[in-house]
Design a protein around this nucleic acid. Sequence first.
DNA 1: TCTCTCACTTC
DNA 2: TGAAGTGAGAG
Length: 742
Amino acid sequence: MSLSMRDPVIPGTSMAYHPFLPHRAPDFAMSAVLGHQPPFFPALTLPPNGATALSLPGALAKPIMDQLVGAAETGIPFSPLGPQAPLRPLKAMEPEEEVEDDPKVHLEAKELWDQFHKRGTEMVITKSGRRMFPPFKVRCSGLDKKAKYILLMDIIAADDCRYKFHNSRWMVAGKADPEMPKRMYIHPDSPATGEQWMSKVVTFHKLKLTNNISDKHGFNWPSDHAAWQGNYSFGTQTILNSMHKYQPRFHIVRANDILKLPYSTFRTYLFPETEFIAVTAYQNDKITQLKIDNNPFAKGFRDTGNGRREKRKQLTLQSMRVFDERHKKENGTSDESSSEHATFSCFAQASSPAVSTVGTSNLKDLCPSEAESDTEAESKEEHVHEACDAAKISTTTSEEPSRDKGSPAVLKPHLFGAEPSGRARDNARADKASPDSRHSPATISSSTRGPGAEERRSPGREGAAVAKAEEARALPGKEAFAPLSVHSDAAAAHLQGPLPGLGFAPGLAGQQFFNGHPLFLHPGQFAMGGAFSSMAAGMGPLLATVSGASSGGVSGLDSTAMASAAAAQGLSGASAATIPFHLQQHVLASQGLAMSPFGSLFPYPYTYMAAAAAASSAAASSSMHRHPFLSLNSMRPRLRYSPYSIPVPVPDSSSLLSTALPAMAAGPLDAKAALAVSPASVAAVDSGSELNSRSSTLSSSSVSLSPKLCSEKEAATSELQSIQRLVSGLEAKPERSRSESP
DNA sequence: TCTCTCACTTC
DNA sequence: TGAAGTGAGAG
């Protein structure tokens, strides 16, 4: 049996393109146009789809596996009733009542994620696979109760850099290593009705992270859809590169069976606070401590309790005392001894039940002056967080709370480590990490957040912004990882206003936003116009047939959308640009996309595509092609795309964005107008009307990255610096330069 | 940096 | 009771 066998259900789809944009958009665009396999996708060395396929660890629900394997083995499309279930084409083709949905997604345990995020989250990856902690959980709403949905998750590279943890902070250490084979994790309960999904918290805790490229937990899709087969496999473990930054993504696909995935519209959600750096061993002690404090399985390492950690700590303390005494006797009371003593004091303090302890590692710290000062400064900032930590952690964040608090990005501009390091407690924990990892090279100071965002920023972060700017200079080309995002949350409306491109630091987000984010519709995808239409037409019935009880909307809707998109996108960028806006809106409407202003659903199928296209072109010359829309708000789908689209010449993203930016600052509507006006942005506009809200965010972030926007960047930087100065006044000590940003 | 084993935990 | 998930630490 082989899962890779050709899918009998779907006719040759030479024109099909991978729904997930390759990181190197330009290449992809080319290959798409030429009908070649995207070169940037590393040749997947998927494990033989044999026995292993059936022995999947429980993460992938058996029902799903049965369907996939069954389809591959028998050549008979599976339906909810199983491979052998009789097909019901007639019913499937019957028009069904279609209920518009407006999915909203809330990240659960947001507070916990925020805590990790501000320290520069690290996720351990092992050969056998390690779960994520915090676990990725979301709560969905706005789904059509009766329609079936497939929920998926994948993890993509956040940027094009390799990192190293140096001087207690994450710094760019070079260009990223080749990407690992992409894997998509299908939620075990898929497909399920909207009602079912909305009735519970959707958790992806079974997804594991590994650095084992020969991992056997991946399988080809039971479809030879050119875009998926060989480019993306599905499985329970995602292969990542150590010391690289990643961004988990959540996808909602309205479809009633897995085989339809490649042909369905994905609504993608990004939560900037879930970004992390993959490591084989923890680098930042604060992260380690945070994990220990919150992960039940790590209880044994907590300060309290009778775990090994406690014993070790006691042992260490004992030895320290002995050593200290002996040292005093031997050397008398010298500066050395004092310092030693000081060190010990720190250690002792850390050991206090009330404080977290670091154990022997504390010795490393020895309370270096730098660390100390840093700590103090940090403590001020973090104090607040700390105070609330206990309460925050653990809980799953309710929707409202989450929004109100704003995404971490909103509150804290810096993604990684921006936070000043620790309070007394952290200090103790900080252990070797004196200054802490607060500054991540990637971190940007930019704040893309809405108007209120700036106000909410924490003081400490401001300093980080400056530092970042400095780092940015040091590390040209590297973008910061700013979590800028506006939390979209469902708050669609919540977007607080136009995304201010304001605080964007230089390297900010822009690039991240676009760069070939896999989910962005690649321009190349638009290129399928005619092909797509015919294909869609031909496949419609087929697909319908495949799924016995079709929820209806999906295929038709997508097809329409795709066809429209194809038409709208035209065969060339020019043609796309000429598409009347109202027509575009119609297209969007046909997809059920809301066209509301900021905060509302993005029109992204097209908008994003256009943007992506632009980005992709830009990416060609940019080092950041990989970056997904990090700066976007996560609550709303970042992207909605259909696998088929017509390639559009890619306008220069920077110009597009830059043009749009000013408008965005003015307001959603203006932003839209601006986009429309911009030649480069025409495509975007046409694509969607919804561009406004989320996209705007993107745009702004993208802008910052653009070389053309240097002046703007500088202005933004200055602004940030000013703010920082003001804020820094509150800090005990001057901030050190932080991570580099682009 | 990475891999492996260990003692500890949860479920 | 045992499988599986933890970080520590040695190599």
